[in-house]
Nucleic acid binder design. Structure first.
Lengths: 372, 372
DNA sequence: TTGTATGCGTTATCAA
DNA sequence: TTGATAACGCATACAA
């Protein structure tokens, strides 16, 4: 019995200590409310969590608790809740580069949607670097995120699937990895590329070059496939038309310079840039060569951005349904979390084509049959 | 004694339960390592936290612990650490709109710098809405962030200072509130605006209009002050030169339309847009009126963005030292956290002017004396 | 040199 | 209808 007594004394002492310390720190916890209402922390917790009816707690008690909670400006400590419930209501987001407007747009919708469903977002950027991606993955795990939304940087998937196997749902957005168990939601890159290529062809273009982005990402490769298939469907030679090596301004610039240095009959009449960054490089090269868009050369791009409308000329492009993708993603992810069901979703969302003023109707153009 | 015995039994039972449950969940904790090494959790904890020398733990023990930790793929549970240490190593970031490239750039540096110092960033966006800002502030508090970086949306400061008084360091970036106790780091907006206005004047411009952004933000007003002071210093009438009401494309568009509809002798020869969004609106209006930049009208802008270089013509602008500001901010904030010292910093960082091709030298221009 | 026991703030089990 | 208490995983004061 002595031991028990000692314990009780220590508890009492500790509680007093706490009370003092906490008042000084202005951190109010559930015990303060219990003390002030002369109720147990159990009852307080139940009222605060809306279980009054379920436990048939009297209306008077309920009101009193809520009153005191408000009076003391009580906020539950989510850290303690998380430890207890093994749930942080936090989603880890990993993008290649938040400075890239495309990913920033995604982050915008993701944070807004998450917030509206009571989740917070921890933001990380892999810089398209595998090592960084791996480190950040560990970081997000140790932060106990409930789930992750990733735009993976490469082809490597082992480290990501390991997370998934660990029981943390992972969902790929935009980019994904083939033959992987990780679900994804992405634009139908193939269709977007096919359609805008067909649009160029329908306007009489035959020598079309595609300046690509990162060759080890699925979206890039799907776009190329769409591009090539459109050429093939129109019986156009596609032997020398793809160039570029990453989604950077530099890559777009260098590749375009090379393209423009070809002799006249081999120079493309239209260039398809596979990303906005690529496009900027393409435009820079074209400007430097003193060529006029669309008179001397036509340009189209994958991805829309507000400023594309304000370029001179404005740029025709494939617009990805970013908001829709992100909303679906958060919806599926949190629903899955709520119901403790894995996310099942390999979705391709249709993009749209925004027609602007960067494509010339080639004079040689003679429409034959039906065109897109 | 019965009670004590019961307790011990319960403990033993619980530990077994845990072991099973945890193995199933693949969540390894410090106790697993203790069990496997036949050491106490204290020793394990000390080794894992690098206190081996301090507590003179034998090399053998140390190695064994590290070995087993690695073998079991142990990751410390940060939630438990946070609860215990009352520190989450998390920084709350609140921007008006992460879709805005300017704020996205800030987020980029902030997340990178934070990560390199062991902190994570919870991202929130106020949408420039006071009510949302207030809610998100509560959210970040309940998330137990160690500190906050905010770009406040308005003039209201009570709710923010309350956070600060609660002991959570808050630091304003870019925007700040006057007569507030909250420290800030921002661009020297006054100087940037003054200098670029002087540049316009030095190129012979006398009728200069300024299309402003949100009138209730300090940066906007500092820019206007710099603009006006430059006019005054050059004895230029400034009576009718300011217009605009927020940092949107629409505002820039509408105000420019009105400006361009003035009769010839009152129409500005140069327009100074106080943000990139504003600039886009200005450009749209100018394009619609079929005016040519810089021949018919000159344009400069506050804030640099990569694509400004690719507009036709490229746009002369004031570039804010975003990266520098954010690096200083994170440095000061985390240093303050480490040393438990409040952040003291009201800093104005000098911007730079990037000269491009959107300003015409007015024919009436006759240089007199020294120019900037 | 290592270990025992306690508490961080919360929820939930069991008891009353 | 309400309460006592264990447990979440960790760090640390105190003990040995």
């Amino acid at each position: 019995m002595r031991i028990v007594l000692v314990r009780v004394q220590q508890n009492a002492f500790t509680i007093n200590m706490n009370r003092q310390a906490l008042v000084m720190d202005k951190i109010i916890n559930i015990r303060h409310i219990a003390d002030k209402t002369a109720l147990s922390i159990t009852t307080v917790s139940r009222v605060l969590n809306g279980y009054s009816k379920q436990f048939r707690i009297s209306e008077a008690t309920t009101q009193r608790v809520l009153e005191v909670a408000k009076e003391l400006n009580y906020t539950p400590n989510q850290i303690a809740q998380s430890l207890r419930l093994k749930r942080t209501n936090t989603i880890g987001l990993m993008v290649p580069d938040i400075g890239n407007p495309f990913f920033a747009s995604m982050a915008k919708t993701i944070t807004a949607e998450s917030a509206s469903r009571g989740y917070s977002v921890i933001l990380t950027a892999s810089n398209d670097n595998y090592k960084t991606e791996k480190e950040l993955l560990s970081l997000l795990i140790s932060r106990n995120v409930d789930a992750m939304i990733m735009i993976p940087c490469g082809k490597e998937k082992k480290h990501i699937e390991a997370v998934s196997k660990r029981g943390i749902p992972v969902l790929f957005l935009d980019r994904y990895l083939e033959n992987s168990t990780i679900p994804f939601i992405t634009t139908d890159n193939y269709e977007g590329a096919y359609d805008i290529t067909q649009y160029l062809i329908s306007n009489g273009h035959r020598r079309i070059s595609c300046v690509q982005g990162a060759t080890d990402t699925v979206p890039n490769n799907r776009r190329i496939k769409g591009f090539l298939d459109a050429l093939v469907a129109n019986k156009i030679n596609s032997g020398y038309t793809i160039t570029g090596k990453d989604f950077s301004i530099e890559s777009g610039y260098i590749e375009t310079k090379i393209l423009l240095n070809r002799k006249d009959e081999e120079r493309p009449t239209a260039i398809f840039a596979l990303s906005t960054m690529t496009l900027l490089g393409v435009l820079k090269a074209i400007n430097e060569c003193k060529l006029i868009i669309p008179d001397d050369i036509s340009v189209v791009s994958f991805d829309n951005q507000p400023f594309l409308e304000y370029l001179n000329p404005s740029i025709t492009c494939v617009a990805q349904p970013i908001e829709e993708i992100c909303k679906i993603a958060i919806g599926k992810l949190i629903d899955g979390l709520d119901q403790k069901q894995p996310v099942v979703a390999n979705l391709f969302i249709k993009p749209t084509i925004i027609l602007r003023n960067s494509v010339k109707i080639e004079p040689s153009f003679r429409p034959e049959g039906e065109i897109c």
